[in-house]
Design a protein around this nucleic acid. Sequence first.
DNA 1: CGGTTGGTTGAGCAAAATGCTTCGTTTTTG
DNA 2: CAAAAACGAAGCATTTTGCTCAACCAACCG
Lengths: 159, 159
Amino acid sequence: MSETRIVDRTDAAILLALDTAPLATTTALSDELGFARNTVQSRQRRLESDGSLAPPSSRLRLDALGYQLLAFVSIQISQGELDPTVAALSTIPEVLELHAVTGDADLIARVVAVDPEDLHRVTRQIVSSYGVMRTSTSLAARELIPHRMGPLLERYLEP
Amino acid sequence: MSETRIVDRTDAAILLALDTAPLATTTALSDELGFARNTVQSRQRRLESDGSLAPPSSRLRLDALGYQLLAFVSIQISQGELDPTVAALSTIPEVLELHAVTGDADLIARVVAVDPEDLHRVTRQIVSSYGVMRTSTSLAARELIPHRMGPLLERYLEP
DNA sequence: CGGTTGGTTGAGCAAAATGCTTCGTTTTTG
DNA sequence: CAAAAACGAAGCATTTTGCTCAACCAACCG
């Protein structure tokens, strides 16, 4: 049982304040939020060491890396070959996420590419990976709601 | 045309170093990487003000928020009603992302929930949103590759 | 109920980091 | 090739950090 600590109101307030001023100092945050500096400091450290936070590089936006194309690739795999298939797909840098899903597909991969041709290359690489039987690509043409956490966090603020 | 600045080798090195030590100071980074402190400082500031980085709260992991369930919901909508539909779906906090995709579905939403019952509630809310005709939910049972940026960034390090 | 534990606060202080500026050198770019 | 932009190095006043201590409060427990 992974005893996952769960964010509380204080953590949420700090995280939301950081969204407004990502480079804010601990002192500035404690001033603004009305917490003691000690509190903000220990909370920030705890969030980091807790494993509550993904690596900082995950903040990097894909277009800032030159990747203009995002696709969701549904993947059907051979029965009982999950582990080696995952290992094979892990070697493809453009595969940003991989999920085992219910439904007609077995896996869903989040994939990026610089242009259509590049996407084709990556898709081909996926198809030819160990254990992969069939794929189906959904190209994300427009990002209608960019990844957001704010609304969930704001729930914590009103008790 | 949004003239998007693109990350270079220096930026990539800084971001990757931060993954190892998220709370590292600018001074420590410049020491470790062999760049001048000025350089690291200006790069970090530029990344933030550039819009190259997503809000810090996007680093927060879902399970740290108490959300154990992740699902991809395919959504078919009424023709020509995109904007109001997006507006309606935006009001649901559990909808973390929304993409317009090619293929049989019109939209794909990334949705979280605390438990199956909660997911059912959220799904119902999506279905009953303005413009939504039909949905199909794929529950992400296991996260096989958690969101990662590292492999893409590491490409920048070898010139 | 008394005791314990865990988190918050406030204060203080030395050490460290930051913000900023200047200047010479590269590197890029038109 | 020349102008412009980026980088490295150095210095310094100011701010922040890291750490410690003591007091306080709430929840928890035997």
